[in-house]
Amino acid sequence: MARVVVDVMLKPEILDPQGQAIARKLPQLGFEGITGVRQGKRFEVEVDGPADAAALGRVRKIAETLLANPVIETFELRVE
C-alpha cells in the first residue's frame, strides 16, 4: 500500500479571503515578517499496491475530476 498526497491550491490570481484573515491575525499574535498566507487543501489518498505510474495516473484523474476545480485551483501530486 502506498500513500499519494494531493495538494490543492487556489490559483495565484484567485482571491483567498481565508488566507488573508489568517495573515491579518499574525501581527496581533506577535509573529512579524509574514507578507502573505494562502490556504489550500491536502488530501492523502491510499492506493492498493505500489505508487507506480498506473496508480499515479489514477490519482491524477481523481484530482482533476473531483479534488480540484480547474477553474479556480491547481494541484500537485507526490508519493509519501
Binding site: 484567485i14 482571491l15 479571503p17 476545480n69 477553474v71
Partner: peptide, 10 residues
C-alpha cells in the same frame, strides 16, 4: 462558466 468562492467578507 466560472466558479463561486466563499464570500469576500467570510
Amino acid at each position: 462558466p466560472g466558479a463561486l468562492l466563499p464570500n469576500a467578507g467570510l
